[in-house]
């Protein structure tokens, strides 16, 4: 047990060391990098990815994957904006319902949770591999987003809604607060609750977990619902920051989230990893995005560099594994 803990700690360290090295290099290359305002800037930009990647971590810990988070994020963002701006007109009845800010947000979160629940249902009841089930949801949710928005952005959503994305509390942007709360809750769940232990157990060895009496289906349903709920929260933040719901929001966000999870040292085979690792992974991606722009690196090279860093992080992780 202690050996295991030690191993986990070491994994956490590896990504942290990578982050520190990256920060030192960028500070040397640009005097604009290591400033308070740029720090806040980076944190604000990664808040959405942290929300999405936190959910993804719990899913990956059960040896699953969720490719639909980007589409779910777009759909939930669009629903928030649409309900807030236009309300809902029942097609056949002559009934119109308006929504308050809280109502619209709640609706979007519930729909997000339902989409995740649906993913979980398909995966557990029909034994569809998570990759396939969520790939289908990726297309379905994107299609619904297009249907709902008719392909046009929904803009000008009012100042109180804009506060979620643009406002700040004691100098720290609201999205960062939201991400912090999400991370703390997720850490609590994975480290301190029965559910958290079940998540690790299922990812470690599903058959053993089943034999020891864990209701695998229930845990998976919860995990996929949580993942999509967090994607919905991410969607609300993105929409609020832009003051506009974009039908093509969130494209390839699942890849950013998975990259954060993997860089953070969580094994795609499940059972090993942590939320904190993912947070560091997300910060590495955010710092890299920010640093490459600060240095005015050509857009062509940026993609190459990002890919190379992801590869490097995972290779270092693997080498660390072998040594033990």
């Amino acid at each position: 047990m202690t050996a295991n803990n030690y191993k986990n700690n070491l994994n956490k360290f590896q990504s942290l060391i990578a982050l520190i090295i990256l920060c030192i290099v960028l500070s040397l290359l640009s005097n604009k990098f290591f400033t308070a305002s740029n720090g806040v800037n980076v944190l604000r930009q990664i808040a959405v990815n942290i929300c999405v990647a936190t959910g993804m971590t719990m899913i990956v810990l059960t040896a699953g994957i969720d490719l639909s988070v980007g589409s779910v994020l777009a759909l939930c963002g669009a629903i928030t904006a649409g309900l807030l701006k236009n309300g809902w007109q029942f097609p056949t009845l002559d009934l119109f319902v308006g929504f308050t800010l809280l109502g619209a947000i709640l609706c979007a979160i519930i729909i997000g949770a339902f989409l995740g629940f649906f993913n979980g249902l398909v995966i557990t009841k029909f034994k569809v591999p998570p990759f396939v089930a969520t790939l289908a949801m990726l297309t379905i949710a994107r299609g619904f987003t297009m249907l709902y928005t008719e392909g046009h952005p929904i803009s000008n959503l009012g100042t109180s809604f804009a506060f979620i994305g643009a406002g700040s509390f004691i100098g720290i942007p609201i999205p960062v607060w939201i991400a912090t709360v999400v991370v703390l809750i997720a850490v609590f769940i994975t480290k301190k609750t029965k559910l958290g232990r079940y998540i690790y157990a299922i990812g470690g060895n599903e058959n053993a977990a089943k034999l020891s009496g864990i209701s695998i289906n229930r845990v998976k349903l919860i995990v996929y619902s949580l993942g999509a709920t967090l994607a919905a929260i991410g969607g609300i933040i993105v929409t609020s920051r832009l003051d506009s719901a974009q039908p093509n929001a969130g494209i390839s966000y699942e890849l950013d989230a998975i990259a954060a999870v993997v860089i953070g040292g969580t094994s795609l085979n499940g059972g090993r990893g942590s939320i904190w690792g993912t947070v560091i992974g997300a910060i590495i991606i955010g710092v890299l995005n920010n640093g490459l722009v600060l240095l005015n690196v050509s857009p062509f090279w940026q993609q190459v560099v990002k890919g190379a860093v992801i590869l490097l992080a995972v290779i270092i992780d693997k080498i660390g594994d072998k040594k033990e």
């Binding site: 740029n38 800037n41 604000r44 930009q45 920051r241 832009l242 506009s244 974009q246 995005n289 920010n290």
Partner: peptide, 15 residues
């Protein structure tokens, strides 16, 4: 992309 433009612009403004 609107969102990407916002993020890139935020970083450029730092530099």
């Amino acid at each position: 992309d609107r969102n990407k433009a916002m993020e890139v612009m935020e970083s450029i403004l730092q530099a």
